[in-house]
Design a protein around this nucleic acid. Structure first.
Length: 201
DNA sequence: ATGATGATTAACT
DNA sequence: GTTAATCATCATG
């Protein structure tokens, strides 16, 4: 792919896309395409599951204010926030809303689109459905690590999100978020109905 | 300096 | 359904 901006997945989403209310951004990220161009090759996947994390939200890393770890969450909308969890996994988020407030959307699952052989090698797994199912798994498949923390996702370069195809309202399911212990009741997880690539029902 | 915790996953029973 | 793996981070002392 010579010019990433002319990829079949469309142009990068602009900062104005990310600079809106976080649950709206999380929902509208469905159908968009996460792309990582690494020295090993290009990998891309359609976003099929996300979660919103807000500043006034006890489940959010930003709830107790800014620290060195969560600092990227307080940066400009469209910034990557990549953190390490359980000693083994990376999780990939996009900063949303407004600079300075600390909100983000977690990408929880992708439908693999491009670079599938590369993803299979990175995961040592040939099962397409499981390749990018779950936040830790998709980072492993896409080659996303802390090296991409704070990356600007609005520029086609190393990592970005292309506009892809938006998902219509009837195709969006919202549920409680996964794996958290606080503020469990908020319906801030979004996924594409009927997708075979989501992390769980 | 120390200890609890965690936006997970795969491999069990 | 349960559990081990595995470690950076942060609050506490």
């Amino acid at each position: 792919m010579q010019n990433p901006t002319l990829s079949p997945f469309g142009k990068p989403l602009l900062r104005a896309f990310y600079g809106r209310e976080t649950t709206l951004v999380a929902r509208e990220l469905l159908g968009r395409v996460l792309i990582h161009a690494s020295p090993e090759g290009m990998a891309a996947g359609r976003i099929v599951e996300t979660e919103a994390y807000r500043q006034d939200d006890p489940a959010s890393h930003s709830y107790r204010g800014q620290t060195p770890r969560n600092a990227p969450m307080f940066g400009a909308p469209g910034t990557a926030y990549v953190y390490f969890i359980y000693g083994t996994h990376w999780c990939f988020n996009v900063v949303t809303a407004q600079e300075g407030i600390g909100e983000a959307a977690l990408i929880r699952a992708l439908e693999p689109l491009e670079g599938i052989a590369l993803m299979e090698r990175r995961r040592n797994l040939a099962d397409l459905r499981r390749l990018c199912r779950g936040p830790g798994s998709l980072c492993a498949a896409m080659g996303i690590t802390g090296a991409l923390n704070s990356a600007d996702l609005t520029q086609p370069g190393t990592v970005w999100i292309a506009e892809g195809q938006p998902v219509s309202d009837p195709q969006v399911v919202s549920t409680q978020r996964v794996g958290i212990t606080r503020a469990v009741h908020h319906p801030w997880r979004y996924y594409v109905a009927n997708s075979r690539y989501i992390s769980r029902k």
